[in-house]
Design a protein around this nucleic acid. Sequence first.
DNA 1: ACCAAGACTTACCAAATGGTAGAAAAATAG
DNA 2: CTATTTTTCTACCATTTGGTAAGTCTTGGT
Lengths: 199, 199
Amino acid sequence: MAPRGETKERILAKALESFSTVGYDGTSLDDLAESLGIRKQTILYHFVSKRGLLNAVLDESVKILTESLEEVLASNDPHRDRIEDLVRSVFRVALEQPLLLGLLREVSRPGSPAAPRLKNQMGPLMERAISWMEGEMEAGRMRKTDAQLVLLSAYSTVVGLATEIEILRTAGVERVLRPSAQRRQELLHFLRTSLTPAE
Amino acid sequence: MAPRGETKERILAKALESFSTVGYDGTSLDDLAESLGIRKQTILYHFVSKRGLLNAVLDESVKILTESLEEVLASNDPHRDRIEDLVRSVFRVALEQPLLLGLLREVSRPGSPAAPRLKNQMGPLMERAISWMEGEMEAGRMRKTDAQLVLLSAYSTVVGLATEIEILRTAGVERVLRPSAQRRQELLHFLRTSLTPAE
DNA sequence: ACCAAGACTTACCAAATGGTAGAAAAATAG
DNA sequence: CTATTTTTCTACCATTTGGTAAGTCTTGGT
């Protein structure tokens, strides 16, 4: 029927949607298959198990996020504000694909079956960001604080934003751009005040 | 056996724990009963259905939260900073009973079966807070912004904090007091800058 | 002592769940 | 066209799930 890996990607997309809204346990393979006009066993064929499907969806999502961050981290332009670029980059993803951060929210919950995997996936990126921040602190361009804490705080704010977007959308609110812009300002402000060296 | 409503409250406590960690769908009545040394039908006897149990847990949690907020909103002492009191109050709850906000996070997810109920429960409190803020705006003591948005933003920050506490605890991190204090400062700062009238 | 109401249990069930085994179809290679 | 591999489907299955029916046991009132 479908000659290329089209089916696999369709499954991934719908799975992301389902996982990030009704959650992992709330997602039934039968329902998922039915909504795709496909038999459940087709899903199992491509992803072996439900957990395998979750892992695949998670890997893909983390990859997209990672790429969008790596891109910014890699640039060495001293004229650009690296932090602002990072924040803008993440917010762009959050606006374009809120489901993606919805999945993160779902998966980062304590007790989630994929929590350890997420930790492994995000580990390298986190460490890289942390070591970069610590370098900046050493050089005196950044106030000395707990880098991991700042990261964690920023992370939860962004995920919170994404969740808000979801909620607002389901509540029928159309204008989500202004709130998100305001939220971004808030995050930027927090990062600035907590990162710039004390005068 | 247990003459007073002791069993009922034990069920509520364990249910709150389970719902706020593994989620509604991830909670099995059988497991819940077993962890209480009780038969599943005892739970059904007290709460009719699983949904009924969720509603009961939610009602109790919202009640606790509401009381702790009403207490602050009711006071009319002009010498006290109302906003700071509110923030402190919520953070105290978040620290003492993180599971409570964990439940909120679980339930406020789009697609949650109890989302509309939560909306109804929190509705009056929200409206009260909003009308108070709008009154302050009229009087010029507060910058004119979207009150609902500010509330939503603060809410998600607090819930984010509670989740962090949970995550940090499961990750074995012991010192959660310092991070939360820092987070509270951040929230306060945000509220101040976004609420004080423009100079 | 008796009875009614409350509290908790055993017995059971229909539906849904994730998963296995293997056939049928479709695509691809020779 | 045929052989092979990839993809999808039909047929089942064991377990778990929330829930019903009806019993037992306890407690308190009269």
